[in-house]
Design a protein around this nucleic acid. Structure first.
Lengths: 344, 344
DNA sequence: GCCCATCGTCGAAGCGCTTCGACAGCGTTC
DNA sequence: GAACGCTGTCGAAGCGCTTCGACGATGGGC
């Protein structure tokens, strides 16, 4: 490979002039700059990454840690890892994947060896040990997800509580007084996985605030049948359903309601909230409050880059406001009867 | 962070002695080595990654390119990316994710700047442009998947043709003379995605060799219904079925057969081949010829590391022999009648 | 008891880049 | 026209590590 010194010789200037011409960090006459750029182009010059890192004291690499629990949703993870990568590239950073059994070791290593300039943490648990590690590290770390104790941390996530409240409001506004929630499997909740808990809290609080009867079910594996049955037992008059669960269970919800003689949206209005998947190909497309990987990751990378490049390290939690996508799976309560009578 | 120079001072030796004590590349007395190791430990010394890269002319980083087509299976991808990462760590390499729109640019950049020491290429198409790029790069590249023209390339993959033959043989040996194949969606085939084509070829060839009647269907989206219907139209007496398709379609195959009055395995024997998913939780667990991400990735990383560390760059294609996992979803042809009569 | 091989350690030369200070050349300013 | 400030360029000093050659010390062979 051609080096900066080769370019300097060929262009008849000094090495530092080459560096400044390419980086633009000092003014260089247009003539010289063009000559350097042209020569660099001709020689196919690309700066040696390690040399640049060493001299600039910056690797332009962001590490991404994604510990994989057995109940983790690979699709969602991959989406987040990719979105971080894309956003990072836009800021001229590459991403290093850290997916060992020991995420802590990876974080310590990338900080200690200056392999990466900062770390993006995915799949955050409520009592995530990586939070303590980050606090002790004096090193830019951004959490995509929110641990219980956010002291000293920078965190980004969809505002799941607001998303839950938004979903409840939609149904309540449409006159539904009895709402079920299909949440995540017990194993996920028990692990203290963060966002399902926040969603659940938001859901329960808003239901109470608005005097709505509610029930919650925790599905197992990929079927919604049992969860739906439980909800219908607890709330025989359930006319609103919120799904904050994996794509397979969510996709199974409409068939599961169908098996109990309820059609969507005539008998039950349904909203998929905090959904990382699209409901367009579901048996009945559902109103959705999306979990937008792009938005979260872009925000996270921005914060991380600000911390790295501009030293902006003040702890803070950024909650991304939920959006509502209407696919007509919510109907006014009471209107249902007319429709079913009409079609019966 | 402590530097090698700090350690040297504290231990009362020279910098080069520190380096040799830690790397073991020259003999160092036990006394000195222990003193250095102890001091390094105490100071929490970790070698600066960029400095090491620059001096050693090696980054200990492997780039992973995974272009994402819209029909790509994220779950499978993530699995492969992670397996590459795990295997790489065992050889003391980290992995850089390259998932831009322009995979070519990423490859060129990591080679040109010496950011990575080599590249693992995922999701290979038959006429993948990255093949030509790799040929022109003079840089270690390993393909996990097999393009049409493998000249000059190092490739690793499951032996899909052998897997297809193995599946056909199992069914044929059990007396099934009429076998259907559910392949991948047309869009995937048309893109020239590589392994479905190889599987298809292996399937057709072996069926012909053994005089088996066969038919192939290409599903759409996530349902198997149409594909199953097509196969039953083409082969009314179909008693064997091979699934070389995504997990959702595969999971839907047994219900789809059920909808047509066929039960598994009594009426139809079924094998999931080249499956990156587990069939354990399917309505009926299926005999499986797994697509083992770990095996492929471990082999690929070994080849890549050999190419980087030991200069072993001879082109070659490594096909991983298929394995058969029996879950009792294949029965002898003709036995089916007895069973169904008995239970009827 | 001398020579040579071996072992253990050190100093110094880079790796290829960024960046700082210096300074020549030129146009302003009074 | 002397003093001044700009602009554009250069040289050199690192960044922290690896690695090569050198060399004193030790020990075995004769």
């Amino acid at each position: 490979m051609a080096t900066a010194s080769d370019v300097a010789k060929a262009a008849g200037v000094s090495i530092s002039t080459v560096s400044y011409a390419l980086s633009g960090k000092r003014s260089i006459s247009a003539t010289t700059r063009d000559k350097v750029l042209k020569t660099a182009e001709e020689l196919g010059y690309l700066p040696h990454a390690s040399a640049r890192m060493l001299a600039a004291k910056r690797s332009q690499i962001i590490a991404v840690t994604a510990p994989l629990h057995q109940d983790t949703d690979h699709t969602v993870h991959m989406q987040f890892a990719m979105e971080v990568t894309k956003s990072a590239r836009e800021c001229d950073y590459d991403t290093l994947l850290l997916v060992h059994d020991d995420a802590m070791e990876g974080m310590r290593r990338s900080a200690g060896t200056a392999l990466a300039d900062g770390i993006a943490v995915l799949d955050v648990d409520a009592d995530d040990p990586r939070a303590d590690l980050a606090r002790g590290l004096d090193y830019p770390v951004v959490f995509i997800g929110i641990p219980h104790d956010t002291t000293g941390l920078i965190c980004v996530d969809l505002d799941f509580e607001a998303a839950a409240a938004l979903a409840v409001d939609r149904l309540a506004d449409a006159g539904h007084a009895s709402i079920g929630l299909v949440s995540h499997p017990r194993i996920t909740m028990d692990r203290g996985s963060n966002f399902p808990l926040r969603f659940l809290e938001g859901f329960e609080r808003r239901c109470r605030e608005r005097g709505i009867a509610f029930a919650v079910a925790y599905p197992e594996a990929t079927s919604a049948r049992r969860a739906i049955n439980e909800l219908l037992t607890a709330l025989p008059g359930m006319s609103g359903l919120i799904l904050n669960t994996g794509s397979e269970v969510a996709a199974d919800a409409v068939p599961a309601l169908g098996a109990r003689g309820r059609s969507v949206p005539d008998d039950v209005s349904v909203i998929a909230a905090g959904a990382a998947y699209s409901t367009e190909r579901f048996a009945v497309p559902l109103d959705t409050i999306p979990l937008d990987a792009h938005a979260s990751c872009a925000a996270a990378v921005d914060l991380l880059v600000a911390a790295i490049d501009r030293g902006e390290r003040e702890p803070r939690t950024v909650l991304i406001a939920p959006e509502y996508r209407d696919f007509d799976s919510v109907r006014r309560a009471g209107v249902a009867e007319d429709v079913s009578q009409a079609s019966a």
